[in-house]
Design a protein around this nucleic acid. Structure first.
Lengths: 236, 236
DNA sequence: TAGTAAATTTGATTTTTATCACATCTCTAA
DNA sequence: TTAGAGATGTGATAAAAATCAAATTTACTA
């Protein structure tokens, strides 16, 4: 079941995957010239908030959470990036330290691309430059949605949104037609929705009783995506 | 009193003001070639969410709120832009409809710049392109701060943040040393902080009693910015 | 495969925030 | 200058969400 017509998933997705695909072979080669392959286990930190940004990362496989740590140590996950997406480019482009941290949600393989290579290709390829402007501008849409959701929507709706997004991310690593099993801890879901694990557990129970999803051990399978989209309360 | 060392205001400011300043005279001229001056009264809508983006705006004077309208009609203000800032460029760059709406917070004069002129200068000026990448990347920092604040911070802290940001915006139109009077409705503050006008009124009373601010009619004067920054609970 | 630590779930309770109702204040326009 | 609409402030109450305190389940590991 696609989300077409029931939830505007593109407004919640950075779509940085499109960058590499639209690049010429020559530019791709230059970008990856000194790329270094790095392997991360579930939970491994890729970079921390406030660290110097020396390069960007391309996700070859796996899944990565982007998050900030609050004053009292609470983690807030504001984006989950999957295979084909880049991370860490904001800091390099803005010439700032990383404003956020990134960690592997599952076993992942990333390519580390030195800042110099990235900046060089930008300078010489008007195409990449234009692509990036487009991607970064689109992120604005994603973030306005995010901020508004957190500022105004109740916890149940936010959990529904988090589940829809996660399902979409996990769908990509599953053969068509196969059930999509979301493998994420309740804590991570809580940190995405800006609530507590207890509230997530309660809400999942409620959704299960209403036939919206089923759980297999810790894994979550959404069985009625349309109803979930209804609960998320998005017009689209 | 500056915010240096007590609050990271740059992490809450888009800094798009820098764009025009760094542009060569020739590029500026080309950008403004067909610019049209538009006057807006307080409350006037500049563009609406979902409208086709046919151009961008440069704020000559005044103040503009960027906001989204929620399902139940609640307005959420996620940014206040002042003189020297651009608005509406995300939609043009991403080739999308406006993801948000903009309206004048006070009498304002804007220059409307047709999309074609903007895009043309981008294509021919690597400088503008680079500036924009930097600004857009910085906005990412601003938004992660915003989202995290809404996801995790209590109402009182969010109101403190809103007041600090508003004071900073109003400071720019006040002679040095003169008191900064924040002229914004309680509703607008509530819509910035993601709460209700009643909570804003109560919190303002509390702040007044603690000597953090004083009110002159509907205007707010922050008298102890340091304490306000303390309450906002930012490490910086 | 049993044992166990960690993760999840559930219930009770407290805290925070929103809502409702209405009093009071402010500013504008006649 | 003054009426009065609209904005703001306050108190009481309701609703939402967080916290606290166990049970129970799950997924490893020995």
């Amino acid at each position: 079941m696609s989300l077409n017509g029931i939830f505007p998933i593109d407004q919640w997705d950075f779509q940085s995957r499109s960058i590499l695909m639209e690049l010429s072979d020559a530019d791709q080669a230059r970008l990856m010239m000194h790329a270094r392959e790095e392997h991360y286990q579930k939970g491994d930190v890729i970079f921390r908030e406030g660290a110097m940004a020396t390069g960007i990362y391309f996700i070859q496989s796996g899944m990565v959470k982007k998050y900030k740590i609050g004053n009292e140590g609470q983690e807030h996950i504001f984006y989950v990036a999957g295979a084909g997406e880049f991370i860490g480019y904001h800091a390099v482009l803005a010439d700032e330290c990383y404003p956020d941290a990134a960690a592997a949600l599952e076993e992942s393989v990333l390519s580390y691309i030195p800042a110099a290579d990235f900046l060089e290709v930008i300078t010489t390829s008007p195409n990449l430059s234009k692509m990036l402007l487009k991607v970064l501008s689109h992120e604005f849409t994603v973030f306005t949605n995010n901020v508004s959701a957190f500022a105004q929507r109740p916890v149940k709706e936010r959990i529904a949104i988090a589940l829809i997004i996660l399902r979409e991310k996990f769908k990509r690593s599953v053969a068509d037609g196969q059930p999509v099993l979301i493998r994420v801890s309740r804590d991570d879901i809580a940190n995405m929705a800006g609530t507590t694990r207890e509230n997530v557990a309660r809400t999942l129970t409620e959704f299960r009783q209403e036939g919206i999803l089923s759980t297999h051990g810790r894994k979550i399978e959404v069985t009625d995506i349309r109803r979930l989209a209804d609960i998320s309360n998005f017009p689209d």
